[in-house]
Amino acid sequence: MDLTLRIWRQPDAESDGDFHVYAVKGISSDMSFLEMLDVLNEQLIESGEEPVEFDSDCREGICGTCGLVINGVPHGPERATATCQLHMRKFSDGETITVEPWRATAFPVQRDLVVERSPLDRIIEAGGYITAPTGAAPDANEIPVPKEAADAAMDAAACIGCGACVAACPNGAAQLFTAAKIAHLNLLPQGQAERYRRTEAMVDTMEEFFGSCTNHGECEEACPKEISIDFIAMMNRDYIRSKFKNRKRLGQKKVG
């Protein structure tokens, strides 16, 4: 297939960017979207133009490195699919495709399609863990976890940290990312001791960097792992509780 690409090019974080138009020909429909960009880059290099910078590592939809806004949609037209898992068969011959970086205040563009996403790491550092120093753990089967809870925790833990939720949000909010990690840990018995401390610290850190949630739901639509927006409700509930929970009694009575 032959395609016209409108690609955002920006030399560095300080400079302004604009769209450049390129033609690529003879693209196989079995190619992935990023392989199509690889072909474009080979063409550009051979013709003496600097290749388009974009982030991509595992190309299996799990590392969360890649992420492009394709025709206005983070990760492109296919639902529940990271950019690297999107294939050209989802496009038609002769189509014009617009490719942009994530657009969010918290994710400044570094160059072309590459953005800086480290505020997501700051949220995890604030409390997205269970304090379990190496070597201190009891036998793994000492703590039974009901299958339903383990499965729900896994649904939330499937987040790949790509930032599509932020890019899709009109407010540039990171609620879905933050809620996914909070839910993963708060749903498990091991996560109870730090439950409210964790929730409060992570939400407060999130608010430092990102916009606020106004329930648009765009994040869930864009998420390549189909993380449910229900986790945001769970996070909000735990956040409010964190403000009046008597933490001295956390281990003594049923939490919930």
Binding site: I130, G135, A137, A140, P144, P146, A150, A157, H184, L185
Partner: peptide, 22 residues
Amino acid sequence: VDIIDQCVAQGVPFAREYGGLL
């Protein structure tokens, strides 16, 4: 064997049986 203990303590959501065991 220590690795599995460590990972479970960290909250790694390993697959479980209905009885709650791994």
